[in-house]
Simulated scan of single mutants.
Amino acid sequence: MGERIAVIGAGVIGLSIARELAGREVAGRDITVLHDQDPLETTSAVAGALWFPYAAESSAAVDAMLGTSLRRFVAIAAEHPDAGVDLRSGIVIERMRDPERAWTAQLQASEVDPSELPDGATGLRTITPLATMTEYLPWLRAQCEARGVRFERRAVDDVDALAHDFDTVIVAAGARGGTLLGDDSSVVPIRGQVVRVERRGISEFVLDDQNPAGLVYVLPRRDCVVLGGTHEPGETGLETDPAVEAAIIDRCTALVPALAGARIHSRAVGLRPGRETLRIEEVPGRAMRVVAAYGHGGSGMTLSWGTAQRVVALLD
């Protein structure tokens, strides 16, 4: 019997890892995704899904992962129009005197004319991948299934209890990762609320994560425009707050007036897996081989393929 591998979690990290493992064509490998939520029920489905590092570790290792993911998304956009990934132009607004621009090493960016920006702000215009998650997550699952990955809806509370069925377990459970392993209390859920509205002809994204009134992003997907958002460490409520929603719409409309009066498409809340550093490593002392893969903050989609590559390298 070959190596039996379980991936816990069907969000963008778990699916990307399963797809990367399945693509290795290692003889005898048997891969199963264990999930208590379908992909479109996960926090990944709530994500704005713009390739941009947000609320995640800053390091040379992560920079390399950013590049890996960017190249993969550019290729997917070119080769798989049904995947829901598009290259979008847009503006990243900066409000700090010395803005962090390390991410620009990965792609081209140019200075924005001050007349297009809020008073006192600087900004960069760039083109970056943006995923319509209602299309991308099902596509990614289908990619896994086409390569023999099985999906099993199963709630997992004890990783070691899987030793009878699996030789290797990869924990890609997002905000639950530390609790599930029982050895990591450093994961802090970061509540994020969004509202999705009709497109209204909006084609460019706007990101203003240093806005003094609160986080702002306007992300035109294929099916809607995602308006955000909030960044609430330690908050775990999953009900949308009407007052918060109204404030999000006001902040976004102030930057993109064309949004005024836009019909609401849907609304959602997700819990980002906040952690000072990513945890991508083998976990010793378990009943089988265990690999942790969580702590991506607000950069799950952005780091997904880089994470998958690192996990596969550990297993290989």
Rank of each mutant, 00 (worst) to 15 (best):
R191E: 11
A247C: 04
V171Y: 07
A313E: 14
G23S: 14
N211L: 04
R222L: 14
R275P: 00
V216K: 05
A49Y: 02
V187S: 07
T68N: 02
R24P: 00
S58E: 15
H164L: 01
G14I: 03
Y54L: 15
D63K: 04
T236L: 03
T253A: 09
A49L: 02
G11P: 00
A75E: 15
V216D: 09
A109R: 03
A146C: 06
E198G: 03
F151V: 11
L219W: 02
G274N: 07
A293C: 12
P39Y: 03
S69R: 03
E116C: 07
V291S: 11
L21P: 02
T104A: 12
D113L: 07
R154K: 13
F52Q: 08
V46A: 06
D184V: 06
A102S: 13
L140D: 11
Y294L: 06
A146D: 14
T240W: 01
Y294R: 01
E20Q: 14
I76C: 05
S89V: 01
A45Q: 02
W139M: 06
F205Y: 13
D209I: 12
I5E: 11
L259C: 11
Q193T: 11
A213D: 15
R24Y: 01
P189T: 12
A47Y: 01
M1A: 15
E25Y: 00
G28V: 05
D82A: 15
R4K: 14
G229F: 01
A293Q: 07
D158H: 03
V197E: 06
D98W: 01
R141L: 12
T230N: 08
L130M: 14
V256W: 07
P242E: 12
G298Y: 06
L227R: 10
M65E: 06
Q37F: 01
A56W: 00
Q210L: 12
G11R: 02
S110K: 08
V256D: 12
A83N: 06
T307L: 11
A75C: 03
G234F: 00
E100D: 14
R153Y: 04
G228S: 13
V74I: 13
I202N: 08
T253L: 09
V194G: 10
G67S: 07
L303I: 10
A27T: 12
T126I: 09
A292R: 10
A109W: 01
V226M: 11
T132D: 15
I264H: 09
S266P: 02
